[in-house]
Design a protein around this nucleic acid. Sequence first.
RNA 1: GCCCCGAUAGCCCAAUUGGCAUGAGGCAAUGGUCUCAAACACCAUACAGUGUGGGUUCGAAUCCCACUCGGGGCACCA
Length: 960
Amino acid sequence: MSETTPASGAADAATEPFRYGAALAAEIESRWQDLWEKEGTFDAPNPVGPLADPSAGEVSAKPHSFIMDMFPYPSGAGLHVGHPLGYIATDVYARYQRMTGHNVLHTLGYDAFGLPAEQHAVKTGQHPRITTEAAIANMRRQLRRLGLGHDSRRSIATIDPEYYRWTQWIFLQIFDSWYDTEAQKARPIAELVAQFADGTRPTPDGRTWEALSATEREAVLSEYRLAYSKEVPVNWCPGLGTVLANEEVTADGRSERDNFPVFKSKLRQWMMRITAYSDRLISDLDQLDWPEAIKLQQRNWIGRSEGARVDFAVPGDQAITVFTTRPDTLFGATYMVLAPEHALVDAIVPAAWPAGTHDDWTGGAATPAEAVAAYRAEAAAKSDVERQVDAKVKTGVFTGAYATNPVSGEPVPVFIADYVLMGYGTGAIMAVPAHDHRDFAFARAFALPMRCVVQPTDGRGDDPHTWDDAFDTYDSVIVNSAHDGLSLNGLGVVEAKAAATAWLAERGIGEGTVNYRLRDWLFSRQRYWGEPFPIVYDEDGVMHALPESMLPVEVPVVDDYSPHTYDPYDATSEPKTPLSRNEAWVNVELDLGDGVRTYRRETNTMPNWAGSCWYELRYVDPVNSEKVVDPANEAYWMGPTEGKPAGGVDLYVGGAEHAVLHLLYARFWHKVLHDLGHVSSVEPFHKLFNQGMITADVYRDDRGFPVPAAEVEERDGAWFWQGEPVTREAGKMGKSLKNAIAPDAIADQYGADTLRLYEMSMGPLDVSRPWDDRAVVGSFRFLQRLWRNIVSESTGELVVTDETPDEATLRALHKAIDGIRADLAGLRFNTAVAKAIELNNFLVKRGSTPRPVAEQIVLLIAPLAPHIAEELWRRLGHEDSLAFADYPVADPAYVVDETVTCVVQIKGKVKARLEVAPSISDAELEALALAEPAVVAAIGDAQVRKVIARAPKLVNIVTG
RNA sequence: GCCCCGAUAGCCCAAUUGGCAUGAGGCAAUGGUCUCAAACACCAUACAGUGUGGGUUCGAAUCCCACUCGGGGCACCA
């Protein structure tokens, strides 16, 4: 770790002043960065609007390439070398695209609202805008140093009022629309109002629209609006002082951020009706070029289940409707379970236990009503965490009521139990203990009857009472299922489902239906640092959307912006919005058409996801003050094309952690905007690529606390910090593990081109790999050798020669061109770098570099190491930047070798090698191989049974 | 518990998708050149047979089955 001498070799400066060292790299890099900035090299012209460039010709005719990185939070801590991995990759790809004739849109904005920025501000005692803007400035400085070719005119930040004006505008579009299930799309709410007004659509209670009060109308409409405010069960996190979306709560009932407990609470909150789009969000995945793993995660999160609704009659002329995915097992339904909070429970509970009620079923209560009340209290007191822990033990209580199995006509007892969730399906199930693991466990605990209706195929017999668990395969046939004109016996599961569903539908006691796991998106937060809602309430409490002319509703400047947080375990606490403290802002006089009146503002703010739900659209048209995005610009950059059926950004690179949060929300917003006619694309992101993480060694002391990795010494295969032994493991790079390495430090030591090259050569972009400080020098040496092949280290003069390249050199060159092109296009940057190194090593060995070869290798490396490439290009006599130079194209004549080595195997073992023409036929090759003396000798007396010839590379002789 | 993904030299990784691992590339190691010495640089050398066990095939890192280890997702969703 002793870095006494800079890598440039200061001592050599006198004799080798033009050596490619850290000092020269720094000089070259800052000079080119200044030039790119001054000339606006990476400014991409739009077809129309303020960013159109008349001198750029007919933009629409040029092929486009819209390349994006996932929006970063501007962290106060600055970047470490893991952060820019994806940014470098997209920059390399963008530069390659530019050199292959594309009009490239590449920029980077900042997702600057939200909890991280606010928490940082609270910690430092400075207003979030000040800390956030400082963090953005620092990040811009760090990123500029890496030579990223961004169009800075398009670098928006979500906290800019001119940006969030449109975030609020989109909210209003969503608020002012409803989902027409027949047309399968969102439509303006005005069209729904018109239907109510002219009577084509009846109001819920049958009165005319005219007869409803404003409040009543709003209540009707809020059942349709895609953004609505409603009292709903929400995830309340006292430790953070805000409510959270389902997607922000972990499986064990804690907040994804800071791991605080989350409690269920019923509160009035803003919701987004994302569930209306469940089906389209699943089916449109097929049109996208995304990693299968991410598509799978989205499909699982949305959780589409096909099944049936079935009515079970209960006394009092009522019915309990259940949802089941297995209507084929209806004959096996031996009891029912309702969620404890199910509305029908009170209606079916009888005054006394039926005669002969099992003692275990009553929970020790004297009457069913008491048992139900006691169980409900018990269930309500449980937090999600406790429920998780207790999940294996089934609890519940008998309601005292019996329902009738609609196919067998048998009475079945009705229970309440917390293993049935109110929020899914109908909040009630038919229990088929023989063929469902959860029902099996419950039936065992309560000694309930079981009936086998799916023939076991594993030899366990057909008496469920002797089984260890339920038998739930789809790959069998139905048995014991015939009564009253319906027989499923002998049918396969799939046919039986259809038959049972049809039978139910005929009798009006059921129908086929689809259920989704996805819930509506909880869209409000009790935060200061977020977009205010463009909503006010009048004196009667009636909600009004602000007109477009009143946007943006700016975040008010206040002294106290900290959230109301509570003891993380205080489930009884209630959220309070920071904005509500500011009476002067909350109460506002406006003229919304009825003259000037006093209104109260909505004081919740939007979640941090809001700004990132649509930023790709604003990148396209960042300074448009008339429209969210001009249709011509949107159509050019994002519109559907042949290879991009749903449209969207051409390449989107980011971490896999956003699989169901940002990517689902953004798709939803985009689809609403599409339905309302604002964008031509159906999906926001066509090709998605998840980059891996850069990990780094983490060293921990004997208490398990991380120690500063930079100060650890290695001795004899063990590690020590301040003389004490420490352990080593791989971990995420970051401040908390004390192993962060700043890109600035690497750039100081070697230059940004080396850092770029190293990050690209570490491995495939999509896998995580450990940072190795020592290995960086390998990329540096490559650039030094490249430089030396073209420029004299002592004089700075060109050393390229005027020779005509020989055939071997041309073959090496064109093979490299061919390979590197394919690798860059396929985002395989690690192998592209290897091939460039290989070609350069060839030139080193060759002893001199012919000028045409020098020019080609400079162009080849330009996307990866743009500064040194620009510098060499200039020294080779070119006046213009190579950013738009044509990328080398391989001559096919030199890509294939004149002769290839053919391997001759005997029974799969290599026995001889032949030099043959690539065009040789199988037959010729076979004859040649069998004539080869080494082969003849190896075959000896053995019989040749078969010869497999795969011209031109292989012959395999099978003897025996 | 269920579902994905992965495992190649001391380390990071290639291998044109079933056809030469005398491994593409890099790091580290060893020897040498340069140097008063070192660092930088340069030259050269060695190092594994593809996590384990079985199978398919003329031929397997690649396909199939089982297992081990590592990473990720879901987790009473009926």
